[in-house]
Amino acid sequence: MSQGLFTYLALARRLAIESTNKSVGRQVMEWCLLYLRSRLGPGFYNLGRMYQRDFPLFHLLGYWSSRQYAQRVYEWNERLYHRTSQNKIVEKAILSTYGVPTPELLGCFHPFRGLDREGRELRSSRDLQRLLETLSPGEKVCFKLTEAWGGVGFHAAEYLGGDQLCFLDEDSPITVSELTERLRVSGRDGVLVERYLEQHAEFAAFNPSSVNTLRCVVRQVAEDRVECLLVFLRVGAAGSLVDNATSGGVIYPVDIERGVLLSGFMKAKPYELYTHNPVTGEQMQGRAVAFLEESIELAKSSLFAFPSIRFSGTDIAISREGPLVLELNIFPDYGGFAYNQVPSRSVLPKLTANNRRQ
């Protein structure tokens, strides 16, 4: 027996102590059923909190396997168009064309083909200096790799004036020349430069160091209609600039019908539930989600901007003025269906030939 299975059995014993959870024997039986039905293991079982007594068996049997999920994604979203959303420059250009609000673009740095939004070169430290001098001291900018996931390569900095700026997660200022060298090393395919998004006070209160976002998973069900399948809030760890679950952020599923947060958890330990915010101590479970309806509607409308894309996990940030689209994930992490306990077979069915032609 593998060490991993021993670990899951030990966890099952711990969970079974709580009267609200299933017995060890019931958990193990359901692991087997989940694997036989969907080729999903105890990790996915725990991520979906399927060990809870009120989680029904017919929901447990309602998930695609990871391979089947990938097949469904490529049925709903044609492979030919996948890179339109994977590249942040292309994605922002398409969204802006249709008036979908996004964070303000300043330019794209690249040593050979970089340009600012006025079409001027953004390829050297002198070009970066010129761009930064359009800001006032104290204003913030952020840098994103044009193709990256999970917050990899994200940096934010405060412009101090002259040739000085300071990254928000560092103490010592750096020069524009030092910044240029960092961007050249980290962003071989280019680095997006945006004005830093100052989030709404409701969302900044969750954790002020990160932009805390809503992931809205939406699906086009007819030529003129998109529905929302699930929503969850991501809150960054204390001191973190990103809210990603892989970076220690807390996930709070949203009850869409009631518009409130459910208990949160960290992806690494989904069996430890948080009714309160571990950063601030404030009550989270049952808390109304500000701008939820507006965020869902924005996620729905943004899907129409992309050709042959019918399914997306859209990341929405709430600025002081309202919701903005950060990005569309047209192959969203399958874990989202487990987070929100939404069986994927029922909401992401196999497409018929007629549906595929829509």
Rank of each mutant, 00 (worst) to 15 (best):
V24I: 11
E139N: 07
F337V: 02
R14Y: 05
F265V: 03
Y63I: 03
P111F: 11
A299G: 11
S186M: 11
T134D: 10
I296E: 00
A70T: 10
D243A: 07
A204T: 10
E327S: 07
L233V: 01
A237D: 15
T180C: 15
P278I: 04
E257P: 01
L11I: 05
G281L: 05
P137R: 09
I89A: 08
E223P: 09
L105A: 14
R120C: 13
V250Y: 10
F331P: 00
Y45V: 04
L230S: 01
D315I: 01
C108T: 10
F291K: 00
F167Y: 13
L326K: 04
S124P: 11
P103G: 08
N277T: 09
M266V: 06
L131M: 14
E327H: 09
A353W: 14
F306R: 00
L40N: 15
L261N: 02
L179Y: 07
Q68P: 03
V289H: 00
R117G: 06
P101R: 12
I309Q: 13
L303G: 03
G236T: 03
L214H: 04
E78H: 09
N46T: 12
G150W: 10
L36Q: 14
E272G: 00
G281Q: 06
A204H: 05
E272S: 03
E272C: 04
R14C: 08
F6N: 14
S136N: 11
A290S: 11
A12G: 08
Y252G: 05
L9A: 12
G187C: 10
P343L: 03
E170P: 00
L135V: 08
E272W: 08
P349K: 09
D224N: 14
I316Y: 01
L230I: 03
E202W: 12
F203L: 06
L9H: 09
E194Q: 15
Y98C: 10
L298C: 01
R126G: 12
G239N: 11
V73N: 02
L160V: 04
L160T: 05
S308C: 08
R37K: 14
E158K: 05
H200I: 05
D255C: 10
V218H: 03
H110D: 08
R83V: 04
E327W: 10
S209K: 00
I309V: 13
V226R: 00
P270W: 04
G187F: 07
P307H: 06
E78Y: 05
